[in-house]
Design a protein around this nucleic acid. Structure first.
Lengths: 348, 348
DNA sequence: GGTTAGCACTCGGTAAAATCGAGTGCTAAC
DNA sequence: GTTAGCACTCGATTTTACCGAGTGCTAACC
């Protein structure tokens, strides 16, 4: 996470102390008011003992360097994505309000149920906490090992393959056969599948029996449907909380539509979040994530890990002028709690 | 479904032929243009050989009787909920365009996978077909019988109860014990659970063993988490397709927000759809369904049945000025196909 | 009696004009 | 390097005027 402390030699794109303060003031006020910010209100910022005129000169520079933009002559300045980026990179870590801290603690003290339920609840919590739309991603089970498989027959040709994985996930797959199988066959197939698959992961290559009897055919069939899953994306879980926030937080019906439409494409959202995570970043602003329809959004993510490994992420989606401090703090806190929750799950 | 053919004696609230035609003309045009409709455009309707003045007189009457409303003096008329209701009740059955029919047929010819996947895909289909937000509800499994239960142990105190129902649904429940249990115990418990539960439904009262050994405790524990589900609502599945349509179809950010916010409350949506279905109606207009925030919406539903029993529903949500003919036809067609799909599931 | 042409009237929507003022950039003095 | 002063810009807001779709009413018409 790029959080630079003030230290001597900085990349070209760095700003002297005063410019930084001015930029920060503009960002803060614009986030608050959604209006272009003028030189006088910046000058009024207590800890900046200069006149509006001076501020103006600096703002011209900031604009030239791409941190600020002017909607039109004779309007105040608005931060660009680059401006927000600088702001976020130099943000001192935010602290959560006590009320929110309590809310999170209480939530995790009382939440229970399956992982899926917890993740879903968490997405609602995040959205309630921040007033933005939240996104919780649980990773797939592609390398979890199989604890148990069972073939249950619904009728003579229609069976259900139920698989339990070591991460606690359960999948089911229909197995439709063109031949009839007796309950005894199914039980035997089930037994063989167990022998064959337990301990392997879905990625493991399996040597299936090549005999031509009903049981062997069933076994082959079952293994094949199990392996037929797309390796990476099936099994990913996505929970979106507070999508109605989109309508309150973005202006312009068209933007709202676009964002909602993106959120509907679950694969895309999962990829987006994981991309951001892969880059090791916690915030993607504007066009940084490369999804053009989301260019007026910022996405904040935090990883959730289990035994040192990333098993998911929590994210928040808002306009570029979102409350980064609070929201980043919230995301971080929730991701921590979630990690702890899954790590020390076994309450007595 | 109330579809009246013109027949002699009607309830008080019925209209003579000409009023009906005028009302219909207003509704049709308003659905098309979203604008108040004036007497002259109604008079221009080919099959109505009267002058605007006459139409006006009739419109005054229609307004008095509550079918039309006037946004303000010297504006055209707009249908009220009652007006739409009359329109819908007297709507001759719509026919789907050939393109849409093909789309539906193709969809059902190629769709495959678990019930859940089919329902989810269906909701997308419906939304694509109609350009409105769609809702697909799959009923719970509360009276499906249990085909198999299995206790899988994750670690000494943490087990997973996996239950397969006759309707093909699978549930999992964590069983957390305060005592340690050996794999042998778990297998034995699993065996006993099978003996105990197979063939019963979730509602059946079960006589659990009262012994104090580990196995019996496990069995009791497992039965109790299984029964702990809320009887009616858990297991209901809801799939919403095209929620971004909300933003294109309703005007006013506030309305959009409200509708989205309702859609987030899955329980509420399920109840809403089932309420409408229970009333034996296929369309709920404006405030007819009693959910105030949805008073500018119309909801069209069609049941999905399996072996004569309702197992779900498809629905579409739009503004009161929605294209009833087309949408009702689409909902009906899809519900028919879905019913057929599940009825004759066993393709060779 | 129902229908219709004629007409005065209403009133929201749109466009043009006027005004305002926040904010700028520049310059000259400090 | 900073700042006060000032002319200038330009979007937002308000004002005014106007248009015209649509109404309700009345008197003539079939």
């Amino acid at each position: 996470m790029a959080r630079r402390v003030k230290s001597p030699p900085q990349p070209i794109s760095d700003l002297d102390a005063r410019k930084a303060m001015i930029l920060k003031a503009v960002v803060v006020e614009h986030i608050d008011t959604a209006q272009p910010v003028g030189s006088s209100s910046v000058a009024a910022t207590a800890d900046l003992a200069v006149s509006p005129a001076t501020v103006r000169t600096e703002m011209v520079a900031l604009e030239r360097e791409g941190y600020l933009a002017q909607p039109h002559t004779s309007a105040g300045r608005v931060p660009t994505d680059k401006g927000y980026r600088y702001f976020v990179d130099h943000l001192e870590a935010g602290v959560l309000g006590p009320a929110q801290q309590r809310q999170i603690r209480e939530f995790f003290a009382h939440v229970r149920g399956e992982v899926e339920d917890v993740l879903e609840q968490t997405s609602l919590l995040l959205s309630r906490l921040t007033n933005y739309t939240s996104v919780v991603v649980g990773s797939g089970n592609s390398h979890a090992s199989i604890l148990s498989v069972q073939l249950v027959n619904l009728d003579a040709r229609h069976h259900l393959l139920v698989t339990v994985f070591s991460d606690g996930s359960v999948t089911k797959h229909s197995v439709l056969a063109s031949y009839e199988a007796s309950p005894v066959d199914v039980i035997e197939a089930s037994r063989q599948l167990n022998a064959l698959l337990i301990g392997t992961s879905i990625e493991t290559k399996i040597q299936v029996p090549s005999r031509a009897d009903t049981v062997a055919k069933l076994v082959r069939e079952a293994v094949s449907v199990l392996k037929a899953e797309q390796p990476t994306l099936e099994g990913e879980q996505l929970y979106i909380g507070g999508s109605s926030r989109v309508a309150e937080v973005f202006e312009g019906v068209e933007t709202v539509r676009q964002v909602l439409s993106i959120l509907e494409q679950e694969l895309l959202v999962v990829t987006l979040v994981e991309d951001i995570l892969d880059k090791g970043v916690s915030v993607a602003i504007g066009s940084e994530h490369g999804y053009e329809p989301l260019s007026s959004c910022a996405v904040i993510v935090a990883p959730v890990s289990l035994e040192g490994e990333n098993v998911g992420a929590v994210g928040l989606l808002g306009p570029t002028r979102m409350k980064y401090r609070e929201v980043m703090a919230a995301a971080e806190a929730v991701s921590k709690h979630l990690t702890a929750h899954f790590g020390g799950d076994d309450r007595g």
